[in-house]
Amino acid sequence: MSTKSENTENRQWTEIVREEILEKLPPEKLLPSKQPAYMASWIYTFGVLTMSALIVVIGTGTFLAIFGPSWWHTSVVGHFVNSLHLWSVELFFFFMVIHLWGKFFMAAWRGNRALTWMTGAVSFLASILAAFTGYVSQENFDSQWISTQAKDGLNSVAIGSHFNVLNFGQMITFHIAVMPAAVIVIVALHLLLVRTKGIVPPINHENKSE
């Protein structure tokens, strides 16, 4: 771009960042009005289903974090929100695993999409840790059983002193602050990569176009 090279030293950093963002993430790619015909398949819907479940997980989790264990264990509404949180997590993993299978058998890392695949895989691993810290933060016999079993495994790999599953304060902080932030950032990056690189075409579609 010719204007870019002109007067570079006089431009503000905000202008440079704005132009870089608009160049890499143009609005027509971020919110496209058309998609390729091969997207008309149910298997392409599982990414957005996973995202939808994640939104419910975060929404219900926010209420649980605000009102605390004494609310989610004793009140009727608390029980309901707690159940919504659990079942949205179940659906989140259900949809995410099917999304993973679909993309794996489609070899979705084709066409310079390796980073999209890797961010998806890392978000899966981060989600497992987020879910695990949630299971040990329930404040019931189930969480007590899981944490006392898990501590032996974690101690055997010498991380028990840093990541103490019997420490409710540490686990709830991981569960409501550290891991959600990590999952949201990685998922956002994953989504941006899907938008910029485009959805992966089926394998047969590539062969036909060659």
Partner: peptide
């Protein structure tokens, strides 16, 4: 259940199948 839903997602045709013209396809490619 996950395997069943995965297979259904592959084999059940998507409703309102709409053919998009080739210039959109090229744009994505």
């Amino acid at each position: 259940l996950m395997v069943v839903v995965f297979l259904l997602a592959i084999f059940i045709p998507f409703p309102h199948h709409k053919i998009v013209n080739s210039d959109t396809k090229d744009e994505t490619e």
